[in-house]
Amino acid sequence: MEIISPELLLNAYAEGVFPMAEDGEIVWVSPQMRGMIPLDERFHISRGLRKALRKDPFEIRFNTAFRATMEGCAGREETWIDPIILESYCKLHELGHAHSVECWDGEGLQGGLYGVSLGKVFFGESMFSRKTDASKIALVALVERLRENGFQLLDTQWLTEHLGTFGGFEIPRNEYLTILNKLI
């Protein structure tokens, strides 16, 4: 199986494009409206999630189970993560450009997310939960880590209702590309 080269992936991200598997083919996507999560005070944590965070239900780990995190993200009825995408991003992870945030408990990996970092931008790819709030807690941990490291943009590709609850918003592609060019 041939993977997407790390160079091609990184160049695509720098141009605001990302791959998805669809019907056995790799398609390259650049949405007209781009979803973002704010890294400033607009990032919103609901009262219920704050309560869950205080209970400290998970051990948060970074980059200890990248492949398993991707497999968790792919483990749904419809997925855009096929074997080519999986192996391509695992290679990108080996090179230090793809990262996972994982929520662990005594029973194992319960949720997390993965994405790609380039410059001061983190491109969130996918998340999953096996236990309540695991992916949400992983997102909060990601935002904290990004803030600590001076990141300025958390790209979610599209805005979902779920991401909107965190303060997520959309901007037009041309505005997104202008911001992206300054931060890469």
Rank of each mutant, 00 (worst) to 15 (best):
K131Q: 13
T178G: 10
G115A: 01
Q157H: 13
G124E: 07
V121R: 04
G108I: 13
L146V: 14
A138N: 12
I171M: 15
L142S: 07
Q157A: 14
I179P: 08
Q152F: 06
N149E: 14
A98K: 03
K136F: 08
G108M: 13
S135Q: 06
N181Q: 14
G124Q: 09
L146I: 15
R173K: 12
L139S: 05
F151I: 07
T132V: 11
V121C: 10
R145P: 14
F169P: 09
Q157M: 14
G164Y: 14
T165I: 06
L118D: 00
G96D: 08
S129G: 10
A141M: 13
L142H: 08
L92P: 01
W104F: 13
F122W: 08
R173L: 15
R147Q: 15
G150K: 00
G168A: 14
E170S: 11
S126Q: 06
T178N: 13
F122R: 04
L118S: 07
H99W: 02
F122S: 02
A134I: 04
I171C: 07
E125Q: 14
L118Y: 08
F122N: 02
G96E: 08
G115S: 00
A98S: 12
A98I: 03
L118E: 04
L146R: 06
V140L: 10
Q110L: 11
S129V: 09
G96L: 10
E94T: 08
L180R: 03
L146A: 12
G167W: 03
G150C: 03
F128D: 05
F166H: 06
H93M: 05
V121D: 05
I171N: 02
F151L: 07
E102D: 08
F122V: 05
L180K: 03
G108R: 10
D155R: 06
G150D: 01
L159Q: 15
E94W: 05
K120V: 03
H162R: 02
A141D: 14
H97K: 12
N174E: 15
G124V: 06
G124T: 05
S135L: 09
Q157D: 11
Q157C: 13
E161P: 15
M127V: 02
I179S: 10
L153K: 00
A134H: 01
L146Y: 11
L177A: 15
H162A: 04
Y114V: 00
H99Q: 06
N149A: 09
S100V: 03
W104K: 03
R147L: 14
F169K: 09
L109E: 03
T156L: 02
K131D: 09
C103E: 02
